[in-house]
Nucleic acid binder design. Sequence first.
DNA 1: ACCATTGATGTAAAGGTTTTCATGGATTGT
DNA 2: ACAATCCATGAAAACCTTTACATCAATGGT
Lengths: 339, 339
Amino acid sequence: MQQQKLATIEDVAALAGVSIATVSRAINEPTKVAEATRRKVTEAVARTGYTTNAMARSLRMRRSNMILILAPDVGDPNFSNILVGLETEASKRGYGVLIGNTQNDPSRETDYLRFISSNQADGLILFTGHLPFGYGQDGNETRLPPMVAVNEPVPNADVPFVGVDNFAGARIATEHLISQGHKRIAFIGRAPGREVNRLREEGYRTALTGAGLTVDPRLIIDGDGTTESGRAAAELMFVRDALPTAFFCVNDATALGVLISLSARHYDLPRQFSIMGFDDISFSSFVSPSLTTMKQPRTRIGEAAMDLLLGMLAGETPKESQILLRAELIVRNSVGRVG
Amino acid sequence: MQQQKLATIEDVAALAGVSIATVSRAINEPTKVAEATRRKVTEAVARTGYTTNAMARSLRMRRSNMILILAPDVGDPNFSNILVGLETEASKRGYGVLIGNTQNDPSRETDYLRFISSNQADGLILFTGHLPFGYGQDGNETRLPPMVAVNEPVPNADVPFVGVDNFAGARIATEHLISQGHKRIAFIGRAPGREVNRLREEGYRTALTGAGLTVDPRLIIDGDGTTESGRAAAELMFVRDALPTAFFCVNDATALGVLISLSARHYDLPRQFSIMGFDDISFSSFVSPSLTTMKQPRTRIGEAAMDLLLGMLAGETPKESQILLRAELIVRNSVGRVG
DNA sequence: ACCATTGATGTAAAGGTTTTCATGGATTGT
DNA sequence: ACAATCCATGAAAACCTTTACATCAATGGT
């Protein structure tokens, strides 16, 4: 096979006429070695095509320069965009990223712990919203590696979180609707049990109150964030005959449901109703009318999370327990002026 | 920190009252060790919480049980769905996956080679459509690890490929249009230089010929697979006044462009024109009318590719130079009966 | 001219496995 | 009853680094 033996540090040492310790130093701490020998070593490295064996290195140094990313669904577009940021930052700092798709299956979560317990990964990025199943068992808390949560915070655990500022984003979104003359604005997707939904509703309420508008409970509809829930919510409002001029939806999927419902009723959008989403998922620009929404800075979230984690790995203690990045208003065609 | 020393194989051996060799065997080749000692070892493992140090293991065995996935854009939804399959299969077989986002940057590609040359990965999955920059240089071909190409084949290199059967898929798609009574069917997205486009065009032609229809060159329009190219192609056909009853588009993005163009002209779809896509990307079910298309079996592609690679790693020689999986016809609302 | 300090290099240990080879006891066949 | 075989186990080498410590020469200060 291709197992043509690779050059080791000894080969380099022999060729350069120095000891292996010197070679190691020449590579890792160039200042600690004399100019002349450094050159000899560099040349020998080039000639042998030597690259340091990461396994031996990791074994000796007890760190792998690898980060494990645990996510419930790797296929989720939300995940993949954050992944770009995570990967970019890690790679820039000489780390590799390992991915683990848990599918919310406890046994798979436990399975991935071997990467940690076997020293194959130094740190953990959690997309799952909870500690991996199997941790914090049998009092052995000390085994927890440095971790950072992304996308969803981990409740009841001291895990720093990096994500979008849902409250501020929802507020900006609602204020945008208000600035377009809307006074009766619905909130679709209330779910007090879900942190994300709760914060977005809070931002919505704050914006209304701040503009001197009253919050009408009949305009706040429950929803679990799916397209279907958005459709159902819109239908419900027609049945109840308590109609807004604008729908602020907890996310784009919900907004799409509302849009489908209104289109089916042949309303002229955005003339008769405005729709505002949150997230800016991929199809938001393709639907008709294209969706005005709040864009999550996903790449930057990934970068910030990885930066935080690598800092912790280097011994820094995180200054904040969470880092919230601002969402950006993307104006498209689903919001119009009222009146 | 959490560096509370982990249990080693020696701790287990001491507790079980056997040698470390026996412990290793009890874990890795249970049949080679007596029933009684095996139980002692198992218990000692449980009590110490021992997990084998992957670094030491990899160092000794000269394999890491890691696969490196090199992709130009990790954020691409096409990638992430295949990734699910890759990851699932790898994990099932005890392998981990490492991801590398190259952004088509040669220096980044070269950079990731260190994972190979430093023994951090045993095999390579290529999404890039070409060998990583820096390989096959200086005649050192032997350094190439086992590789499998996915998504895009690697030209001029002996790399097995796993992907969708574009020819058969395009043929099925076209035959579906024919079955709905269409006789004047356009092909949007001709690009003979691109393998994917060429094969899909070929499938289209074969279906027409097979049904006794003539191929009208005026109905075959160039395009690079972008939404804009689809829009432009449709406009061009109106200008030329050589109109089909159905548009078979090289991919969904192109189909979307056609759909936008026709919608803007206020045609009633699919009554006046039918549109067929290829790929089944995420928004295809959301546009109006929702897109009839060929679905790529992405998860299965990932699984098949990983299965092939792991087989090669185990010493098998791949039987075929490529594995083509069938695309599945997804009937939605953009194709209607003619007449 | 001598001692103390600095700076560059080398020696050897440690990191935790897997696996070859040797050893000794038990089993089998005649 | 004895030789031949087999089976379970142990000792030790090998995998390739990094780094604490030792060594030795050169430099600088008095």
